[in-house]
C-alpha cells in the first residue's frame, strides 16, 4: 500500500533576512495508509505549519510532499484546492463550521462543493452524524450545539469526502479532559473503522495513547528516534 503521506526533507521559512523564521527544518515523515499519528510539541514549534503543508494549504520552501501517492510539491493553487477537496480531511483549531448551516448541511456542503448531492450524500451525512452520536441534532445550527457536539460535527465534516488522510489540529484543546477523551475515542474509532490515515496535533501527552505512534516536534525539527519506526 502507498503511504498516505510522505514528507521528504521539508523546510518552511516565513519572512526574509533578519526576520526570517524557520518553522520547519528538514522535516521527513511517512504516514502509512491506515496509521494514526500524534504530533506533539510546544507552542510555535511548527505543528500547524507541518499539517498545512501535508494538507495542501501551504507550499513548502523546499522538499517533497506526497499525499495519497501524488506529488504536490509544485502543485498550483487550483491543484492544491483539488487535493484538499478530494484527498484530505481537516479539523481546524478554530472555525470548522459554517454558522448559517445546520449540522447536516455542514456535512452536505462538502459534497456540494464537489458538485454532487442527492440521496447518497444525505445518507452518508446521516450515517456519519449517527455514528458521532448526533442523530438528534441533525437540524441544529452550530450556535445551538455544545462545544463537544460542534467538534463532533467538525469530525463528521472532515470525513465526509472519504479522505485518505485526516488532519486534526488540536481537536480536544477546547474541551475538558473527559470530553477530550470521548472525542479522541470517537476519532480513533472513525479513523480506524475506515482504515484511513490521520495526524492529530495535541498539546496533551495523555491523549497520545489513542494513536499508533507519537511524533514530537521541537523548533521545527521532527524528533528522529521516533522517525526510525516510520514505514
Amino acid at each position: 500500500m502507498t503511504n498516505a503521506l510522505e514528507l521528504h526533507d521539508i523546510t518552511k521559512t516565513y519572512g526574509e533576512g533578519d526576520n526570517m523564521i524557520t518553522a520547519l527544518a528538514s522535516a521527513t515523515l511517512a504516514v502509512a495508509s491506515d496509521e494514526m499519528i500524534a504530533l506533539i510539541g510546544p507552542s510555535g514549534s511548527g505543528k500547524t505549519t507541518l499539517l498545512s503543508i501535508a494538507g495542501g494549504l501551504l507550499s513548502p520552501s523546499s522538499g517533497q510532499v506526497i499525499v495519497g501517492g501524488k506529488d504536490i510539491s509544485h502543485a498550483s493553487p487550483s491543484e492544491l484546492t483539488e487535493v484538499r477537496r478530494s484527498t484530505v480531511g481537516f479539523v481546524f483549531q478554530s472555525v470548522n463550521l459554517v454558522p448559517f448551516l445546520t449540522a447536516r448541511e455542514n456535512l452536505l456542503l462538502v459534497d456540494e462543493l464537489r458538485g454532487s448531492r442527492g440521496k447518497q450524500s444525505r445518507d452518508r451525512a446521516d450515517r456519519l452524524l449517527d455514528e458521532l452520536g448526533l442523530a438528534k441534532r441533525l437540524n441544529n445550527l452550530p450556535s445551538q450545539l455544545s462545544g463537544g457536539e460542534r467538534q463532533r460535527v467538525a469530525i463528521g465534516r472532515a470525513l465526509m469526502n472519504e479522505p485518505a488522510l485526516v488532519l486534526f489540529d488540536e481537536p480536544t484543546s477546547a474541551l475538558d479532559t473527559h470530553l477530550g477523551e470521548q472525542v479522541m475515542e470517537l476519532i480513533q474509532s472513525e479513523v480506524k473503522g475506515r482504515g484511513t490515515a490521520a495526524i492529530i496535533i495535541t498539546h496533551d501527552r495523555r491523549m497520545t495513547h489513542w494513536c499508533d505512534r507519537t511524533v514530537t516536534i521541537l523548533d521545527g525539527h521532527l524528533q528522529t528516534d521516533e522517525l526510525a519506526t516510520a514505514g
Partner: peptide, 8 residues
C-alpha cells in the same frame, strides 16, 4: 473555511 476544505 470553505476555501480550506476545497471550494474553488
Amino acid at each position: 473555511l470553505m476555501r480550506a476544505i476545497g471550494a474553488h
